[in-house]
Amino acid sequence: MKITVAGKIKEYDDGITVAKLVELENVETPEYVTVTVNDEFVESHDFANTTIKDGDTVEFLYFMGGGQA
């Protein structure tokens, strides 16, 4: 299936979960990433039981803390 991950079209196996995608995309600090699928938040406790479908759009939003000191 084809899905859009962080703005790029990618090919993944059907039935992949958010948890698996987080792993395959080498998401840094996966415990603290915010995930949206089709502009809706997926809570971290739902990563393992949320399946991504063909055509879905997935975004990873990261904490970025710097700026001042």
Partner: peptide, 16 residues
């Protein structure tokens, strides 16, 4: 809305 709560201290690196 997006980030919910601060990550535990030292869990996410800062610039320093």
């Amino acid at each position: 809305c997006v980030f919910k709560n601060p990550p535990p201290k030292d869990a996410v690196p800062t610039c320093k």
